[in-house]
Nucleic acid binder design. Sequence first.
DNA 1: GCCACGGATGAAACTTACTTTCATGAGGCG
DNA 2: CGCCTCATGAAAGTAAGTTTCATCCGTGGC
Lengths: 304, 304
Amino acid sequence: MAKSPKISASHEPGGLIVHISGLLPSLSPAEQRVARLVVSDPADAARRTITDLATAAETSEATVIRFCRSVGMDGYPQLRIRLAAEAARRVEPPDARVVGGDIPPGADLAQIIATIAFNDARAVEETAEQLDPAVCEQVVEAIVAAGRIDVYGAGASGFVASDFQQKLHRIGRTAFYFPDVHTALTSAALLGRGDVAVGISHTGTTSDVIEVLEQARARGATTVALTNFPRSPITEVADHVLTTAARETTYRSGAMASRLAQLTVVDCLFVGVAARNRTKARKALEATAEAVRSHRVGAGRRRA
Amino acid sequence: MAKSPKISASHEPGGLIVHISGLLPSLSPAEQRVARLVVSDPADAARRTITDLATAAETSEATVIRFCRSVGMDGYPQLRIRLAAEAARRVEPPDARVVGGDIPPGADLAQIIATIAFNDARAVEETAEQLDPAVCEQVVEAIVAAGRIDVYGAGASGFVASDFQQKLHRIGRTAFYFPDVHTALTSAALLGRGDVAVGISHTGTTSDVIEVLEQARARGATTVALTNFPRSPITEVADHVLTTAARETTYRSGAMASRLAQLTVVDCLFVGVAARNRTKARKALEATAEAVRSHRVGAGRRRA
DNA sequence: GCCACGGATGAAACTTACTTTCATGAGGCG
DNA sequence: CGCCTCATGAAAGTAAGTTTCATCCGTGGC
């Protein structure tokens, strides 16, 4: 056996600390002092320089290096980064997140933020999970082939509708959004076969939107509904139904999770449509970006 | 030396990478090369020596050190350790999802959906992670105490601004949003001490929004900026800066991730404000919900 | 069109950290 | 008692990290 056994630490990514404490007894006294420091506070050890650690262990740098070799590292820097990684892994997840629940009355801002982020992110993920790619495909198809696209939405869903319209418009599709029911109805009456009407309503019960979608359908347009409730009234007037998966908690986030979920679906549709003709879409996007350039300050990078 | 402001990296234990990508545009070209290497593979960067990394980024060691300072580290060893820790914490993104990358040309809808959902959800999570609760607190405080709140935003950020305005309005706060610069300027000119002006701009370079915020500040209002880039021009005219953490990929999602990130922040602020006076907020929300009831079909449960 | 200025950059000097070498001395054993 | 072995730290040596500074380049003023 050569002087330093150098126990393999390579194929045990999770247990450096365990590894070290395991062979602690086999180390020389001075190395043991180093090992104990390292094991008791890996994160702290990672922060220290070799001289620093040696001093703390009341020994010399040379011994620290020997210790590194003894536990299978090439040198001190490697030990350091391994320790940092190890220490980072063992922080437990912030379980204070009140999963889906209401914010407790006494909550501080940090808790509120964590809870909201968790719920918002989950709404996005779950929505994507339950989205039916086949339906999306059909909708994308219809939009790509459409002569014209109308997007309807009232109240909060109106923002989403408007956003969708703008996105489609930016890649050269002819799309409209109407903040007002009467105008929307007028427009719907002018739709025809091959056109597409998209109705967005979280609850699926917004009569204005349903009415407009119904009109569009009567004129022969392909109708699409985006709602959180797969059996809501709006689905009855839609050829294709896309659903979100936001479990809205009473007043908590004022329907923000549902907004994010809707936008995620819109994002998917948009990218799907854009992917159909990448070069044209990209060129259109570049052109529109160029158009607002003069309204930007600090062309290159920002601030010195 | 006071040249590099050294943006605080201290309060965001989980988001070094996010932090760096936010600062990316504010870095010099050579530093950006380093930053991109670091962001694209933190674990690998942690393994490299400074000379090694400098070579890989086709620059000098000096620039790497400057980069370290720019992102708030003391020096290279500290960066290394933080990177190692970060990389360890980071869970491997599942399989084919092209993390932050562009959608591959041949991708089918299902892949597109998975990729988008992943990136969108991450934008939400990472934004929440790096949000400074202290700053949020101050902003909430200001909004609660405000005589009046103006929210500004152009283009895509305009939707967010408008959404925020509507939310505040619904819980009884006096809030305004203006789709037009001239009207916005006029309004800003009428703000005064105790009022709040919120400017939203993803890039932080939208001159219209900056101009209006500047005006508001000159009138004594408390100004708040919401942007993805902590050193962008808009931050210079803001008393409080809130940042999102969306790494926008070229044209891919047409800025949707940034939209979601912005909405998440808005959501947090909104809930923060609402939490200040739960009963009043809840009553206001109920009243507004009641107001649109007649525009809903199938009052109770949906469909037989 | 020229010049002054300021920032970005890398070469080189310099400092600090890490590694190796080696002398010392404390046990252990014949 | 002498010799060997091994742990250990001092010091020398090497590599890594940091600072300084001269140069270069683009920008804006004249």
